[in-house]
Nucleic acid binder design. Sequence first.
DNA 1: ATAGGCCTGGAC
DNA 2: GTCCAGGCCTAT
Length: 250
Amino acid sequence: MPELPEVEFARGVLRRAIAGRTIVRVRVLHPSLAARLPAAARRRLTGRTVRAVERRGKYQLVSLDDGRTMVVHFRMSGDWSVGRAGERDEPYARAVFDLDDGSRVSLIDPRALATLALVDDVARALPPLGPEPGDRAFTPQALAASLRRRRGAIKPALLDQRVVAGLGNIYAVEALWVARIDPRVPACRLGPARLARLVVAARAVLAAAGRERWKVYDREGEPCARCGHAVRRIVQAGRSTYFCSHCQRR
DNA sequence: ATAGGCCTGGAC
DNA sequence: GTCCAGGCCTAT
């Protein structure tokens, strides 16, 4: 589930469940999370009241009344589940936060790749992130500046969170299809017109998330919805790329 | 720039 | 069994 629209939705779920609440108990149910959120951190979380739940890129930021922040990243398969304290733990529950109103929030994560960390300084804890796709700062000019020296293909560049914060594999693939750009084009070779199309396309595919099925993602061999040419799958930087080699131009 | 690792489950 | 998975980090 987790690309930007899904993370934003999850942030809302978490905010409604936890903002203003006090954490009365923390349990970690998977060893890989226990390493990231050791006993001392779990102790410090207990008794804290949640001030706000924000988001930067795909990071969810849970700010606490002691000034610290719990930083959450879903990676491949994380999600929140809201329930009542004392109920049986859901399948794949990896961390459980009991709250002072008798509710609880669980991190559900089949692949157990999600991360939780308690940090003093959020700005220092997060890696460098580019503009949010919905930001005014995400302009063709800004894209041009960050891609100017990148001779590698545009598609892997779009997955670099320093270029734009929140695009993942599916939406990078979809945005390039909408913008009619070949994913193999060197990033630095895109001119203003195509960068402008890419900005618009990235916003559009994120805005349409959930309402429409993917146009090319996971459609290898199917006809392109625009021109009927067969959709191709290639691997770039270890990730699947789907595209139409007829109407997505080099 | 690319491969491998982290984890587990699902599709074949 | 094998391969694949919406992310990201580290090492080469």
